[in-house]
Nucleic acid binder design. Structure first.
Lengths: 361, 361
DNA sequence: TTGAAAGCGCTACCAA
DNA sequence: TTGGTAGCGCTTTCAA
């Protein structure tokens, strides 16, 4: 009943309409229908209008699978996303979907989560002939990257540095780490600590290394190194450990490799009766939404996710057009967000209350 | 260089291998290759082994698009997911991906987020000939549902009741609401309030209605009705309002339609100096991970997400096989989680500390 | 400006 | 057990 009522030579009842059935119905050739539907200028306005009307009347939808078969492009982008319990990846996912749609691409969800990618799953990239692949995950090695490279599938990674091959768009983690170090140092902190994320994640390494380097360069002792996995639980455990330290050795400022870690640290410190930032300053990095609101109001460096994705899709598009291009690494500057989780330098103290205020990093 | 070295009659250099090129190379017919690769029992073991070896040697990957064209099924499931900043949807997404992979399905990400689905996006369901569709979102009306129905695409909704058509798998929200009401009433709360989510979401309505009904049935005054959107911000605003009430009129127990709301309420109450649960009990619903940990340790009803998805995929699979089946509504019981955000009835008081304890709902 | 025919990569059918 | 052929729905030559 969605189809045309009568099932004469053309509208095969119950079946979906095709270019051929439309052509028969309209009394033209299939090629004409095909061209008309894609607004080929060589088709006369009348015919085009007639076919367009017919198509919309019967609710025709082109079969992209068939189109891809001949055209060679599927319109699909493979998406590998990190653990979405991390709000950062949740945000990336959401933005990626809408941005992809703007370019007429659809996302094939290849993997989500922290676990390794199974072979069968990775194979689907090839089986579905994805035009490109977007990897959003901090883990360094990846089977998907290997497959893409071996098969000429354009690949862009977001929030991670390309490991062996593929292009990448990332926040300038070193700049961010240095920025936070500068902030804490200028605010008068003297005993600092860093809480690291996963040992194999470029983001964590870059952020904490740059922080430490900047602290040392400022003449302070090297920060205490804690953590080692990117999770709230790890942050919490670290916070407990810090709270258990004697007042003489306890750091007065803690830089975390991610907001997730920072939230865990803050939770543990507060549960142990320590006040943030009065007793100890905590800063994070990522700028995820839950970290910016109550009860954290975290001082952090926000990743410019929209810009990152836009650039990532640009890189992908260039390579999908077939133009051979070398791999690129694009670094975008993060934005310092002055929350209420860290003591501020005197010259900034006015900015921090009551909400967050932002300044370019 | 991924291809075979010499480009004789078969291995077209740089191009991907096809059934035809494999056949030429192996000196057999294309149909033989096709059958051999799919382990058709009619192919002799030797030939099959030879072809399998060749295929794996050259790194052949079947083109699913072409296969779908003839076979009629794409192996794709369209996925519409709610706002993933809500950890509930993030968890659902992650579980859906891995569970789909177990059945050999891939997820085509059609939409993510709270916004409405654009027409072009919804059309992709038809264009890519998805075999079925999974909607995970609390919003009641949906363009996608209409499209699926009009085109015979099997549709299952998770965490929401089917609006006009389609099957659905949901947590038994009424039972959950009643369970929480019972818990609070038995613990001696006398002035209760409910914080509702979006006005058009079945989950919110069912949960709060059942809660209220149960409270009234217990002989207490009808709960105060607050809220009206499912977000942390709304929870926070509601918590502020509650905190501002005079001690005489302020509720002593608040039931929230979601964990997200409950977290907001708790954050606001605490920021205003009220203690949870000493001054006021707060319970949520969903059982999302952030709500279960510090600083919330929420008392809530956890949705059995794994079971829900499994059932949803079962429903989908039945309908994808072509067997005509009526729409079904599957309700699964949630699990009461005794956290630390609500005062407990005397008979349960021992269970609640120090971690969470669980009991079947 | 339109039509006829070939073919994308694969599977299914009918013979051999 | 294997091969040839047709055809899925579409686009794209090449002719008319």
């Amino acid at each position: 009943m969605e189809m045309a009522g009568r099932s004469s030579g053309d509208g095969e009842t119950g079946e979906r309409w095709t270019v051929a059935s439309l052509a028969r119905r309209a009394g033209v050739a299939a090629s004409t229908v095909s061209r008309a539907l894609r607004d080929d200028p060589r088709i006369s306005p009348e015919v085009r209008a007639r076919i367009a009307a017919l198509a919309s009347e019967v609710g025709y939808t082109p079969n992209v699978l068939a189109r891809s078969l001949v055209g060679g492009r599927s319109g699909l982008i493979g998406l590998v996303i990190g653990p979405v319990e991390n709000p950062l990846y949740a945000a990336l996912l959401q933005k990626a979907v809408s941005r992809a749609a703007l370019r007429g691409w659809r996302l094939l969800l290849v993997h989500a989560g922290a676990g390794p990618i199974e072979q069968a799953t990775a194979d689907s990239l090839l089986q579905y002939r994805v035009d490109g692949c977007l990897i959003t995950s901090a883990q360094l090695p990846s089977r998907v990257a290997t497959i893409c490279r071996a098969n000429g599938v354009p690949l862009v990674m977001v929030n991670r540095v390309a490991w062996e091959h593929g292009s990448a768009v990332s926040c300038d983690n070193r700049a961010g780490g240095a920025l936070l170090a500068d902030l804490l140092v200028r605010a008068g902190h003297r005993r600092l600590a860093v809480v690291r994320g996963g040992p194999a994640t470029s983001t964590s390494l870059e952020r904490t290394e740059a922080f430490a380097a900047h602290v040392v360069a400022a003449g302070l002792p090297a920060p205490l190194v804690l953590g080692g996995a990117n999770s709230h639980a790890m942050g919490y455990a670290t916070g407990e450990a810090v709270a258990a330290m004697g007042a003489g050795e306890r750091p007065d400022g803690v830089m975390c490799a991610s907001d997730l870690l920072a939230m865990g640290v803050v939770d543990a410190l507060r549960e142990r009766g320590l006040r943030v930032p009065d007793d100890i300053s905590v800063v994070g990095m990522d700028g995820t939404e839950p970290a910016l609101r109550a009860p954290y109001y975290l001082t952090t460096v926000a990743q410019p996710l929209d810009d990152m994705l836009e650039r990532a899709f640009d890189l992908l598009q260039d390579r999908m057009r077939g133009v051979p291009r070398a791999d690129e690494l694009v670094l975008l500057r993060g934005e310092l967000i002055l929350g209420r989780s860290a003591r501020l330098p005197a010259d900034l103290a006015g900015d921090a209350f009551p909400g967050q205020s932002r300044m370019d990093a």
